[in-house]
Design a protein around this nucleic acid. Sequence first.
DNA 1: TTTTATCTAAACCTAAAGATTTAGAAAAAC
DNA 2: GTTTTTCTAAATCTTTAGGTTTAGATAAAA
Lengths: 233, 233
Amino acid sequence: MRDFNKKLRVVLIDDNANHLRGIKELINLESSYDVVGTTTSANLGINLIKKYHPDIVLMDINMPEKDGLQTLQAINKLNLSTKVIALSGYDDADLIYRAIKLGAKGYVLKTMASVKLINAIEEVANGKIYLPSVLSTRFFEYFQSTAREEEKVSEEENLLTSLTMREYEVLELLTEGINYKSIAGKLIISETTVKTHVNNIFQKLQVNDRTNAVLYALSHGFKPSKKTAMTAV
Amino acid sequence: MRDFNKKLRVVLIDDNANHLRGIKELINLESSYDVVGTTTSANLGINLIKKYHPDIVLMDINMPEKDGLQTLQAINKLNLSTKVIALSGYDDADLIYRAIKLGAKGYVLKTMASVKLINAIEEVANGKIYLPSVLSTRFFEYFQSTAREEEKVSEEENLLTSLTMREYEVLELLTEGINYKSIAGKLIISETTVKTHVNNIFQKLQVNDRTNAVLYALSHGFKPSKKTAMTAV
DNA sequence: TTTTATCTAAACCTAAAGATTTAGAAAAAC
DNA sequence: GTTTTTCTAAATCTTTAGGTTTAGATAAAA
């Protein structure tokens, strides 16, 4: 939780100098915040963060030099407790999704009322995620549609279902990058038997080599059975 | 958007008969809803949904017979516009995350005030996602920590970074399951050159065959460069 | 009871993959 | 200006992988 005796240390990054000044003045109106640094450059911004270890970073994620998402990644690598709030002119679902995925604790549109920005800082400082309702809906729609596509791929006429138990076991070992000899050893069958199984697998999955068999498996929701590999005593 | 002339058709699924009755009475107090079916069985619930094509389904996701997540999947496969709101006794992050991922449009705790349930129905019917603040925070924490783990794996001593541009291009084609001859054709170089590159790749990634090279690539954040494959005119 | 499916296995062959060495040319780094 | 890196290529050899056919044993289904 937040310590209200200390001022929240804030760093601002925005390639638009005018906008930067505007935000700074806005924040300085609040007595509980302390803007310790501002910059129009992403790279300089990272240096500021290294130097000051701020509580909060407000960053425009649509910058030319180094884009905001890359900068987010760079900040993550510093492993600080600094929380980043993304500022953006766009409510693009993909952008919102990726920003959140890269650890942004908030996402505020530049067109939004300035009071929202203060709200965001307050909420994020208290350990919450700040996503205005509109953006939150965008995020979830994107999230669910992505997940749904993955589901579809692993459902529609999945050739994996035509495999027998034994073939599935063999495929499982193939996906671990193991050769015939070792597979034979693990399943305690002969190498030629393994070859037979593998050839049957190829036919059923309609591929010609193990790499493509593995690729098919991984892209069609193949899941290790877990109960395998106990044949070995 | 919702048509306020029509009543929202609702189906309830909860293995606890008492709870089921309670929810039904609660909803029936609202004149704009019409509970068209209730059941304590997940399988019967799916049948009800098939029959009535309700607007909203309220479903307990902690059921014995068939768990709620499986039921969610089954409902998804019906490809209806029915929206499912998950009811649960637990605010477990993993459970929330998976429910949303499987398309749940809302998640409400049984301990929450009943007015929240009405709110949830109303919001979801209007095309929004209903996730109370506490649960939303849980979701995002889980989402971001999962993403962060993936990032880590693809960062920590990633052998992919030791590859040259050309080797990266070759690896990219390997991950598409293409053989030497075709790779040579695509990059317009000789087959022996491809072999040289592949052998160098193997050494750098510390593997002995293409399958393991591909597996390494896929598990370490390998991303197609997109600017490849134009060598071919 | 007789198919049918599955698991096992061998023989035989071809093609592809992998290991190793050597080497020229061009570009980048020192 | 010399060293290093990278991309190119060939030769040679060994080892897997892959294709095909045949077949016995068993268990389940028709």
